[in-house]
Design a protein around this nucleic acid. Structure first.
Lengths: 258, 258
DNA sequence: GTATAATTTTTGGTTGACCAGAATCTGATT
DNA sequence: AATCAGATTCTGGTCAACCAAAAATTATAC
């Protein structure tokens, strides 16, 4: 759904990817590259079906087979497209029965589908911005809701981080895990899910832009500070510390925009 | 991904669903219903593969065929599982080459996979809580970033809402669209995407719990207030109004918990 | 012995056929 | 004429065979 073009966790050579990116760039100057994924093509067609009135809100979608032959594409792609639309609540499919368009206004539907189609291209700034929001809320809720046992887990998570970080070793994963543990304490699964969704994207951009991820004393202390703030249920301090903690990345993100 | 068990936008009879739910309840008392989706079963198996050391971070996953025969299941399910894991950045698949496990700590991986497995069951409170957060941030950013043209669009959206609402007609879609338009003004696509993801879930719960959605004058005025606040770039007022606006739902959500 | 080109194998991507449950149609019974 | 049981058709879910690109292997030329 969220298209992650590159993940830093994977060992394979970056050069190949870079070369590939350049190639693609050259090609894009030669002809209009229609690199639309089949799924998006089909979603666009369905959208067309709606705007031409061949399909109306509440209607049953034509069966997958019909759609696949109408669009001249395999049924797999049609199913993928439908699944994506279902994920965003635009259609609902009932097994052995059919797929139904949501019974909302045609214009609303149209906008929603357009939104879904335009999702993939995230800017780094947007990602970081959203992360800051998710994490500040997360840490604030954590202050309210954590139990004693939670603190033990959080301490364990922090220890793992410090163990590496204090020796000057990169500890991105441990860092990440510490933040996700905080999200756990918020007792809000939706919050954590959303964080889970955007974190890989953030990391991928991190690597693309080669953000310096050396362990600074600042970051190290902030982690400790976060723990004590949460332990003392000091929402204010926790929130502020978190904002500060993420500010570095945020500034970097702002600087890229140019 | 986010399993939406019921969407209010679809016309088909609720009774059938209700009866079905009861039946299922009875059955669940008779024997341990393993209603796990095939995808989750496979993800669980992959997790097992990791914890038994048969698979390590950075490794190439066995080919899909091997996995499917090892788990005694169709390749389709394996592919679905891999896709889900990829969505959360846990694996990365390269066409015609293989699928690779992220090179992060084994414990981190384990936690991440557990998280992915536990995602589906969202509580209404968590959903609303998250929505409030997303929307307040959204409206705040909107104040900063909107252009004149944006305001025209927002006004149009509000008009559509008022047109129905002032005559006492249910206007859930128009309401929804107004909020999404605000998200547009925030110029943060990630924010809007996340909103798009959780909105259907919220609506489904809305209908399940039969939340009263009559148009109150309060809601109506708040919408107007939101527009003017945004127009005047008054972040404070906009944020407060949004919080107030969503408080009704929030309180309802809190009340359900019992 | 090394480097390169041709070939085979492996692998994810794609397609079409098959399965089981839901919906619909049919006709016999009351 | 209305109703209900059975057969039929339709539909999404599942699976197994096929495709093309990538990787690995082998053969060949130098």
């Amino acid at each position: 759904m969220v298209d992650q073009f590159f993940i830093p966790f994977f060992k394979y050579e970056k050069n190949a990817t870079a070369t590939y990116a350049i190639m693609e760039n050259i090609l894009s100057n030669l002809k209009e590259v229609k690199f639309d994924k089949p799924v998006d093509v089909i979603i666009r067609q369905v959208k067309e079906l709606l705007s031409t009135g061949q399909l109306k809100p509440g209607d049953k979608l034509p069966p997958e087979r019909k759609l696949s032959e109408k669009f001249g594409v395999g049924r797999t792609h049609v199913r993928d497209a439908i699944r994506k639309l279902e994920f965003y609540g635009i259609v609902k499919t009932r097994p052995q029965s059919g797929t139904f368009v949501a019974s909302i206004g045609i214009s609303a539907l149209d906008t929603l589908i357009s939104d879904v189609l335009s999702i993939d291209a995230y800017s780094f700034l947007s990602l970081v911005e959203t992360r800051v929001m998710l994490e500040t809320t997360s840490v604030s809720l954590a202050c309210d809701r954590h139990s004693e046992h939670d603190i033990i887990q959080l301490e364990a998570s922090l220890d793992k981080y410090l163990e590496k970080a204090e020796r000057g070793i990169r500890a991105v994963e441990e860092d990440l895990m510490f933040h996700l543990t905080i999200a756990d304490l918020s007792k809000n699964k939706v919050l954590k899910s959303l964080l889970l969704i955007i974190v890989p994207d953030i990391l991928s951009n991190y690597s693309v832009f080669s953000v310096c991820d050396t362990v600074t004393d600042k970051a190290l202390n902030e982690h400790k500070k976060l723990l004590t703030a949460i332990k003392n249920r000091d929402k204010e301090l926790a929130t502020v510390t978190m904002k500060e903690h993420l500010e570095g990345v945020m500034n970097f993100a702002r600087s890229i925009i140019q």
